[in-house]
Each structure stands twice: as C-alpha cells, then as structure tokens.
Design a protein around this nucleic acid. Structure first.
Lengths: 138, 138
DNA sequence: CTCCTAATTGCAACTAGATTGCATTTACCA
DNA sequence: TGGTAAATGCAATCTAGTTGCAATTAGGAG
C-alpha cells in the first residue's frame, strides 16, 4: 500500500486494520468506481471476512480523509474509487449496459471562478458524469 | 397547464388525470428541483389527496416523456424539476444548509463532441452539479 | 514483551427512499 | 353512455445505507 495512504490514516488517528487494508486493496485493484456491495463481493472472493457494515463505515471514513472519491450515476447507490496518485477526472456510463469508462479531462476550472463571482458561494467541488450508449449497445 | 405538456402526454397515450395535473402544478410552482416527498407534501397542503406512490410513478413517467428532469445531489434521494420552457441549466448546492440555486450556463457542448470522438460512445446527456458554501454558511 | 485503552469490528435491528402486486377507480373515445 | 385501457391507493416488499452495542484488536506506553 502507498506510503501516502498510511500517512493519511495515521495522521487521522486511524488504525491500519486487516479489514481496512483489504478494502483499500480491493479499491486499488479496481480501475473504475465500484459499489460498496461490489467491494464486499471482492472481499468474499478473496476469502477475506469483512462485514458489509465495515465496508460502508470504511468507505465513509476514507472519503472524509480524501483518500476515496464517491461517484454517483443516479443508480440508487454510490460508487467509490481511490484518489491516490490519480489525476482529477470524470466518467461516462452507458445507458444500455452500465459500462463505465474514465474521462481524463475536466473543463470546469475557469467556470468555477465565474460561478463564485455570480453566486457568492465558495465552490469546493463538483459532480460531472456523462451518459450515452457504448459501441456495443448503440 | 402548458399546451405542450398536454400534447406530450396525449401522444404518449397518457391520461390527464387529477393526480397528474396536481403533480405538474406543484412542479411548476417550484422554481428549484424538489424531492418526491416534497411534491407529496405540497399536494397535501393543497388539500389534494394523491398517494406518494402515485407521485413516484408519475415522476418516473414524466421523466421518460422528457417533461421532467431528475437532478441528484448525492443526498440519498432524487430531485425533480419541470423542463417546460426552461433552458438547459445546472445547479449549485450549499454543503452547509442544502440551499440550491440555478446556474444558467453549461460549458459542455464542445466537450461532448470530444468525448464522442475519444470514447465512441453516443453521448446523450450529462449530470453536472456544483457544491460549496453559500454566503450565510461560509 | 505485556498491558491498557481507544478504535474498530460484527451482528442484529432499524431507517428511508423507492418499487411491486393487485383490486378498485377513472379518463376518454367510440 | 358504456367499455376498456390507464391510473390509482393501499399494503407489502425491496434495497441501500445507518445505528446501538458488546466483543475484539491495533499499537503506543511502560
């Protein structure tokens, strides 16, 4: 596991438990954002006994520490991906098969400034997802 | 109610029921996206007896017809707004008080073309929400 | 190395948002 | 005005996620 992650946990007063290591390992093995249930499935497959509740609690905690990023596609559930060493990016999901792919771009830096001027909000984040039909489902 | 809405319903083989009219009226009275529960609350206040299930079913149907737009702020519930006569736009929500305001802009037309070239997806929509702190919560 | 304590975990119960099955009612066209 | 497909209400159900609590564990102090 990356040193930066261990550091972040420590400075947050968090322990490096077996469950936590396993959850982070699963997230690092998945290039694309996965659901809590999928994290749990992978843990079971890897013969690692971690309760689904523990998965939820750790995902929430890792999000607070900024180690994990939550992504929503309006599916009725959230998806999660590790932040560690990856550039800020967005996703596109196929409306047919649900396939997700990474988009290594973000057009919103300039726009954020404009919005701050217009609304007087202090903007500190955004959610941007694209939807469409992949070549197979088209 | 706008003629265009009545037309859309008819050509979709949908009836103009009392419940449906009331739900559309509530949505038209709310400038900002509201939840199914809030729609239901407004109906109760207006002494219109419509079951929450009927609200859910109609919101889903209106969305399919493209008359209503679903917006998600990762709150664990969806919000809905009428499309009728409003330009495509996005929103910003305060992380403190949950206040939402409209942003009458969208920077994504050009980007959509680029994504289609890069991914071979046929892009047909996107979700873009901003988060931050409003002047009162800052 | 051992002990202590706060952090973490698992289990069970619970919550909230949303969906489904089915019998009854309603819109609307012939 | 009657027939019928669409729509509704109610109750039951589902799924994602959360909470309370007793038992366990990581990891620093001594």
């Amino acid at each position: 596991m990356a040193t930066s992650i261990v550091e972040s946990l420590k400075s947050g007063g968090k322990k490096l438990t077996k469950a936590r290591k396993a959850i982070l390992a699963v997230l690092e093995q998945n290039a694309l954002p996965i659901t809590a249930a999928e994290v749990h499935e992978d843990l079971v497959k890897a013969r690692t006994n971690v309760d689904l509740v523990t998965v939820y609690r750790n995902l929430a905690m890792l999000q607070e520490l900024g180690l994990v990023n939550a992504v929503g596609f309006h599916e009725g559930q959230m998806r999660y991906e590790v932040v560690h060493g990856r550039a800020h990016h967005h996703h596109i999901q196929c409306r047919g098969c649900g396939k997700i792919i990474d988009l290594m771009l973000c057009p919103l830096k300039k726009l954020t400034k404009l919005i701050e001027e217009q609304t007087k909000f202090a903007v500190d984040g955004h959610a941007l997802e694209f939807f469409g039909w992949c070549p197979q489902c088209r």
